[in-house]
């Protein structure tokens, strides 16, 4: 899975990132910790507001579903007890979905997770650990495709999104954060997905780390000047 990412591109928010992988292009912004509305406030921990905006049309149930999946991934990842009675606003703007919007959300979910992680790091929100996500598909001849494009998704027998929690400098997988599968597949294939997914997500985790590292080195250089 190849992708380009950039962080710290927006000025009015605390953290931001832009990610492009094939034809999928997503902007993510993070603002927080800020004062929440009364109904969002949690007495002991950080509240999350996740907003996903589609590139075409108005947000509807499809975007709500993506928001829910992201919430499931990031709720255990953020060190929420550090920010009681605070709010973190995560906004994702999909510029180009890179898949048929009526049928699939896989590419958007996987890339949104990676973009959100980068933006959270850029915003300096405390995290328990790293994560990485990828979309997968099993083609009609039972081959596993990593990061499938729109045509491959359409031709696939089943489609999946896998997000893993990575620890110890992204060398060890701690937990499965999300495994979301649709279509026709058997047990062996599912384990295959976990196995193969793990290998490429560990690689992806390193890539994400190197993006963050180079960002930190650059900002240190600026400070030293």
């Amino acid at each position: 899975m190849s992708f380009q990412a950039e962080t710290g591109i927006l000025t009015q928010v605390d953290g931001s990132s832009q990610i492009q992988s094939q034809k999928t292009k997503i902007f993510c912004s993070v603002t927080g910790p800020i004062e929440p509305k009364a109904r969002q406030e949690l007495p002991t921990q950080l509240a999350l507001e996740i907003i996903v905006r589609p590139s075409l049309g108005v947000p509807n149930t499809r975007e709500k579903l993506i928001e829910d999946k992201l919430r499931a991934v990031f709720t255990p990842l953020i060190t929420r007890y550090l920010y009681p009675r605070q709010l973190c606003q995560i906004t994702l703007q999909i510029l180009s979905s890179g898949e048929s919007e009526q049928e699939f959300t896989q590419r958007e979910v996987a890339n949104s997770i990676n973009a959100t992680l980068l933006a959270l790091i850029d915003a300096g929100i405390a995290l328990n650990s790293m994560c990485a996500a990828i979309s997968l598909a099993i083609s009609s001849d039972d081959k596993l495709i990593m990061d499938p494009n729109d045509e491959q998704l359409k031709a696939a027998k089943s489609v999946h999104v896998l997000a893993l929690e990575l620890v110890e400098s992204s060398t060890v997988v701690k937990n499965v954060l999300l495994l979301d599968s649709y279509g026709d597949f058997n047990e062996k294939q599912l384990f295959d997905i976990l196995e193969q997914g793990e290998i490429s997500l560990l690689k992806l985790g390193k890539e994400i780390r190197s993006i963050v590292e180079s960002k930190i080195i650059n900002s240190n250089l600026i400070i030293q000047k």
Binding site: L10, Q12, F27, T31, I51, V58, Q89, T91, Q93
Partner: peptide, 15 residues
């Protein structure tokens, strides 16, 4: 033409 603001442009905008 749809011109809807989101908090991405700044926290002064409400979703």
């Amino acid at each position: 033409i749809s011109t809807e603001n989101s908090p991405m442009a700044g926290p002064q905008f409400e979703n």
